[in-house]
Design a protein around this nucleic acid. Structure first.
Lengths: 210, 210
DNA sequence: GGTTACATACCAACCAGTTGGTATATTGGT
DNA sequence: ACCAATATACCAACTGGTTGGTATGTAACC
């Protein structure tokens, strides 16, 4: 086993933790597991993280950051029509579902399920993660609603449904052992939005609408 | 501590496990915890369950049964209009959200998040649980769709969205530490259904419809 | 030369599971 | 109806391995 270069232990641990936690959960992932997977020793672990809980917080924050950057810098953000950006976002989320289940499941959602009562700091980090996910779509939805206002429909409320669809889709996909469940959540969301915004899907044989 | 009557250890353990697992997750709940909470010894535990995994399976199955009975025997099932039954089901789910978060969170969903890769038997039990939840609403939705058919909309697909809303609502409510998130999932589902089925909410000042 | 970034060795508490036993039902023969 | 044989339900104590965390040491960098 070749030793990793000095200074990389922290990020090796975060990467390994992201993977292990998504596959086994937070509690079932031991510090020894983590160190073995990252190829570092426990000395390195406790040099960078005060406790296992602190690692949990760092992993969720790391998750928030990387996914945030990924969505914020993606091409679809440059589409002119805000509603088209929302649909493109849904397309992107659907395309992520081609990966194995453990690789598209959400670290924040997985972790908060088991720690929301026992590790307040981890729950708070998960809250930040979820809120940042909501804020991203909410921005596009607010623009779309500005162009096409609706009584009783808010960007905040709709954006919340996106997170619910993401998290619910993952849980049900895990239970049924079938990513199709997660996909259907996005399909349903898109159909609802097209109904609300009166914007049917443009298809080769159905474009007799302005 | 008064000793529990003979023959009750198994159900005491299932009850305690349902509570502890919802609060701390499956992995973080130790067999000793369980025995202490149930007021029985480890001897009793391993007399009734071959392993901790076997208990996990039994808890999820117990959950499927009790929730199944609760929904199947509820009054709203006697409403004549199938779509009204669906709305009444949503009302019931919303009313359950008045309980503390740990008491309305789903044992199957919580458990499958951390065990879907590590304990196949528990995942399978969770699949049964989710499928039984889907089947319940699907029955009402199928009747409603028979009266009001729609292209591209199936009872199965719609029922799946109910489970996704339930599970997603719980995850997001845990993350935001606010049951309102779970409530909004049901509100959104109801609005979507009223839109799809062209059945706006009957309100005191808006009942000029047959 | 001192601070940062690790490595090694170790520990007490806890973990799932086992052992060997006892008290209480249940059964079948008379 | 009564009693032995057997099975069930449970208990207390124990075990080997694992847990998160620590104490101490050392090699690289500024």
């Amino acid at each position: 086993m070749t030793r990793a270069p000095r200074g990389e232990a922290r990020s090796l641990l975060l990467t390994a933790a992201t993977d292990l936690i998504r596959r086994k959960g937070f509690a079932a992932t031991s510090v020894d597991d983590l160190c073995a997977a990252a190829g570092v020793t426990k000395g390195a672990f406790f040099h960078h993280f005060a406790s296992k809980e602190a690692l949990g917080v760092a992993v969720v924050q790391h998750w928030t950051e990387t996914t945030g950057v990924m969505f914020a810098t993606h091409d679809y953000n440059r589409l002119a029509d805000p509603l088209e950006r929302v649909f493109a976002y849904l397309d992107l989320r659907r395309s992520l579902l081609a990966m194995p289940l453990a690789e598209f499941s959400c670290v924040a959602g997985t972790t908060v399920q088991e720690t929301y009562q026992t590790y307040p700091a981890i729950r708070a980090a998960a809250e930040d993660s979820v809120r940042s996910g909501i804020a991203h779509v909410q921005h596009h939805l607010a623009e779309a609603l500005a162009l096409h206002p609706m009584p009783g429909v808010t960007a905040e409320g709709l954006a919340l449904q996106f997170q619910i669809a993401v998290q619910g889709g993952i849980v049900v996909a895990k239970a049924l052992d079938d990513p199709a469940a997660a996909r259907s959540a996005f399909d349903h969301l898109e159909r609802t939005l097209r109904l609300l915004f009166d914007r049917p899907l443009a298809s080769p044989d159905t474009h007799n609408r302005t």
